[in-house]
């Protein structure tokens, strides 16, 4: 590992530490489920037919892959200043490592208890790893992985998403 690969203390201290526990800003609602299904032309009757959902699951639920949707802040809210960002641990890493651009390189999720209408969810973010500098097609940067673990108001595990990002500077930056 070269000297340039050494991580700042502030970054090393973030690794494996649960950060930014937060609750959803609104109870889970059907409008976003319809928007998501419409955006991908998902005709699964489980999400469109209330009676079928109650028969199969006992309640109306959201598609499992919507897990991250519920934690993105509104673009604007009264009293808020500056841009409001989901996955703050990722943006902290960008700032601390001086890597202004980032893309999601891979995404992995496992799904537990279904998310139901009216649920209030809680997440925490855990930085799992930060890799050494690498030259990529987009620029020179580092890969890092952040886990987001989600539970519902009953403490049931509803899912964990693991994001691997490439943070980088473009050649002219």
């Amino acid at each position: 590992m070269s000297a340039a690969d050494t991580l700042p203390d502030a970054v090393r201290n973030m690794i494996d530490t649960p950060l930014y526990e937060e609750r959803t800003e609104f109870p889970i609602e059907i409008g976003y489920v319809y928007n998501t299904c419409a955006a991908v032309e998902n005709g699964n009757p489980l999400y469109w037919d209330e009676e079928l959902a109650r028969t199969l699951v006992g309640k109306r639920i959201a598609p499992p892959t919507m897990l991250s949707v519920w934690f993105r802040p509104h673009y604007w809210a009264p009293g808020a200043s500056g841009e409001r960002k989901a996955l703050q641990a990722h943006f902290d890493l960008k700032d601390l490592l001086g890597l202004p651009e980032a893309v999601v390189a891979s995404n992995e999720a496992s799904f537990g208890e279904p998310v139901a209408m009216g649920d209030v969810l809680t997440t925490c973010q855990i930085v799992r790893s930060v890799g050494p500098f690498k030259k990529t097609r987009l620029g020179t940067g580092r890969f890092w992985t952040v886990d987001v673990r989600t539970t519902n108001q009953n403490g049931d595990w509803v899912g964990t998403e693991s994001y691997t990002f490439l943070g980088y500077g473009r050649p002219e930056q």
């Binding site: 998501t36 991908v40 005709g43 489980l46 598609p63 992995e108």
Partner: peptide, 26 residues
């Protein structure tokens, strides 16, 4: 992208198919 994959899989399984895990690289 995840929502597209989910739609693709449950088009095949029908509503009784239940997704347990999904991972992908773009």
């Amino acid at each position: 992208n995840a929502a597209w994959f989910e739609r693709y899989i449950t088009d095949w399984t029908g509503p009784l198919g239940r997704l347990g895990r999904l991972s992908f690289q773009m």
